[in-house]
Simulated scan of single mutants.
Amino acid sequence: MDVSWTALPPEIIETISQKLPIYTDYIRFRSVCRTWFSSLPKTPLHLPPQLPWLIFSQQSFFDISTHKTHLINLPLSSHRTRICGSSHGFLIILNETPQIRLFNPLTGASLFLPPLHTFPNVVSFDYSNIGREYFVRNPNGDLGFFNLKQMCNYFIRKIVLSSSPQNDHFVAFAIVDGYNNLAFCKKGYDSWIFMSDEIFQFWEDVVYHQGLFYAVSKGGMIVVCDVDIPRVSVIETNVPVEFSGDIFYVVFSGEEMLLVTRSLGQEFSDGGIESNDMFVYKTVGFEVFKMDWNVMAWEKIETLGDRALFVGGNSSLCFSAVDFVGCCADCIYFTDDYSESNHDDAYGKHDFGVFRLLDQIIDPLLPSYPRNSYSWLGWPLPIWVSPNPC
């Protein structure tokens, strides 16, 4: 006896839907018929992290699973804007106001972290005068000042989140003032708290893993930050002779801690509308190291296996390429995050691509996109963001 698919019990429909790890597959499944649509929630709660989109302008993003560009409408302020992080589907947005905004480009959800003037080293703040000055205590104890433009570009290097901001227990963690301070805030806090003001290192990147934040310095030092106490534990590491690079990223692959080093070179610009006939920085290669916790040493690895890494201004991500259509194994997908201080001229906005670790070759990610395009002007640097329906 034939039974119509539309007559399946709701609990069976829900059980099947939970076997779908890709958000777009879930949407298609829910859209099969009215019965399935009404039996399933609009927001699935079972999904693992999704393959990220590349947001490269206020109006569009690139989906590597389909190799298609889609339209999007980011409600960015008319003020000069910088995206200083992307984590759990949310962009962390700064502009020339004190606000630090979290925005989900998939759902439109928005909320705010404590503003810039609530960091402990901002000793005074005047938003009423023309200069919009912040007076900030430097690591050596001297008092300096930043205007709003400088605060937007320099004061915060990067912000990562422990989980989606919709979670009542999420934590935001910031690398502050370039090199000297690590700060955090929890949901509901009205100000930021420093982990420590006595460890002076140039912190390159930070990642959240199993209840702790791990920050890595230019020399490969690790600090483990427990925000519940709060407490900082310093781990001195040994590095191999080939350990070098201009930018470092840290990411966990399961229980394995990886460190990605990025090397930059210079090339003469092509004289386009954004280049001003100057030398510009360009990525020339990557190396990957893993932490051997037995001897506290970084060891170089030659291959990522079936893994793919996504690095840049986002919280660094690691995926198994076999789980996603269009994702290439043993590759590093990268965007520029080194020219924040220069992004008036947008030099770095074209420095993104796919680095193949095995043969050390960089492939273009958007080969057909015009290099000198007016659509770049005025927008933040391209950034990866994992679509999150929650």
Score class of each variant (00 low, 15 high):
Lys68Arg: 15
Glu236Met: 12
Phe252Lys: 05
Val223Tyr: 08
Met195Asp: 00
Glu287Ser: 14
Tyr26Glu: 12
Glu287Met: 10
Tyr338Met: 05
Gly271Lys: 10
Leu259Pro: 01
Phe155Ser: 03
His70Gln: 00
Leu113Val: 04
Tyr208Val: 09
Leu74Ala: 01
Pro98Gln: 04
Thr335Phe: 00
Asn167Trp: 00
His79Asn: 14
Asp168Cys: 12
Leu182Gln: 05
Pro114Phe: 02
Phe90Val: 08
Val206His: 08
Ser124Asn: 10
Asn181His: 06
Arg137Thr: 11
Asp142Gly: 10
Leu259Thr: 12
Asp336Glu: 14
Val250Ser: 15
Leu148Trp: 11
Phe213Cys: 03
Asn153Leu: 13
Leu76Asp: 06
Asn140Gly: 15
Gly313Met: 03
Ile362Glu: 04
Leu74Glu: 03
Glu96Lys: 10
Asp226Gly: 04
Arg356Cys: 15
Lys290Arg: 15
Leu20Tyr: 07
Asn138Val: 10
Gly353Ala: 12
Leu47Trp: 09
Val385Ile: 06
Ser128Trp: 02
Ile64Lys: 03
Tyr23Trp: 14
Ala174Glu: 01
Glu287Ile: 00
Ile16Arg: 13
Phe146Gly: 05
Leu357Glu: 04
Trp379Lys: 09
Ser17His: 07
Arg307Gly: 13
Asn180Met: 05
Met278Asn: 13
Ala297Trp: 07
Ser253Asp: 09
Leu20Asn: 09
Phe319Ser: 09
Leu357Gln: 00
Ser60Val: 01
Trp384Pro: 02
Asp344Ile: 15
Ser124Arg: 11
Gly211Lys: 12
Phe200Thr: 03
Ile199Arg: 13
Lys187Trp: 10
Ile12Tyr: 15
Gly89Arg: 13
Tyr369Gln: 12
Met195Phe: 02
Ser77Gly: 00
Arg101Asn: 06
Ser163Met: 07
Val160Ile: 10
Ser269Arg: 05
Tyr134Cys: 05
Pro49Glu: 00
Gln58Asp: 11
Leu76Lys: 02
His350Asp: 07
Pro21Gly: 08
Phe289Gly: 07
His350Gly: 13
Val171Asp: 12
Asn294Ala: 14
Tyr208Thr: 08
Ser4Val: 06
Glu11Gly: 06
Phe324Gly: 10
Leu71Met: 06
Met291Pro: 14
Pro120Gln: 02
Ser253Val: 01
Tyr189Gln: 00
Ser86Gln: 07
Phe103Gly: 05
Thr303Ile: 13
Ser315Leu: 01
Ser110Ile: 05
